[in-house]
């Protein structure tokens, strides 16, 4: 059991979010972290998965999970992501930060649950869900929930949905940047806060390549 867990974790750290999710049980993944174990999961857009459920149990004392996402939706795609983090052990921590850009008529449904159980004293959890809407008919639904049963803890979440600030576009254009390039710069900039968190810089370059090369090109052809 321990060996299998190590293999899974290895895969998680080495591979990028997209491949990672696909290799685990289709649609639903569960991970349990033991004492002092730490894990970073990076979610990338994928044509394959449209309905993902991820549950992380922070069982061991001091275990930590970081779930970062740079997601895109376009055309008429609909993606459903459900992330649950359950703090069972003491001094466990979770940092969930998802950023999604929606083009065309895509839909994103996000449901996040952070539960801190009675014995998870000294734990902390943070959930951030930010959606940038570029498509005229794009839709976002977000339900970030908290269930807190211990008081020596800190938990918070924040979510925003909005469009590109016209003032920002105008500022970039006033410096000679074309609208298409300005939009692309802002979209790339939008993802920076999650990319910055990745300690594996080699992965960052790889992710950027995948994000920009494949996905963004598809939705921002003029840039």
């Amino acid at each position: 059991m321990g060996e299998k867990k190590d293999l899974v974790r290895e895969k998680l750290e080495l591979t990028l979010g997209r491949t990672l999710i696909d290799r685990l049980e289709e649609g639903e993944s569960e991970l349990r972290l033991g004492a002092d174990e730490a894990l970073t999961i990076f979610l990338l857009p994928s044509q394959k998965y449209k309905n993902k459920k991820l549950t992380v149990w922070l069982e061991g004392r001091g275990s930590r999970v970081e779930i970062l996402g740079a997601l895109l939706g376009g055309g008429e795609e609909e993606s459903k992501i459900s992330i649950r983090v359950i703090h069972k052990g003491r001094e466990t921590s979770a940092y969930i930060h998802l950023r999604t850009v929606l083009f065309g008529q895509s839909r994103s449904l996000f449901s996040g649950l952070i539960r801190i159980e009675k014995d998870a004293i000294g734990s902390g959890s943070l959930l951030e869900d930010r959606v940038l809407v570029l498509g005229e008919a794009a839709r976002a639904e977000s339900v970030p929930s908290l269930e807190i049963e211990a008081n020596e803890v800190k938990a918070s979440h924040a979510a925003t949905v909005g469009r590109i600030d016209e003032e920002q576009l105008f500022y970039l254009e006033s410096r000679g940047v074309s609208r298409a390039t300005a939009v692309r710069m802002i979209v790339e900039g939008f993802f920076e806060p999650v990319l910055r968190r990745l300690s594996r810089k080699d992965l960052v370059a790889q992710i950027r390549g995948e994000l920009w090369a494949d996905a963004l090109k598809q939705y921002l052809p003029d840039s």
Partner: peptide
Amino acid sequence: YPVEVTGVSLFNFLKTA
């Protein structure tokens, strides 16, 4: 009142402009 643009570094922005 110059606007803030998160995620875009001053240098890269200058380079693009």
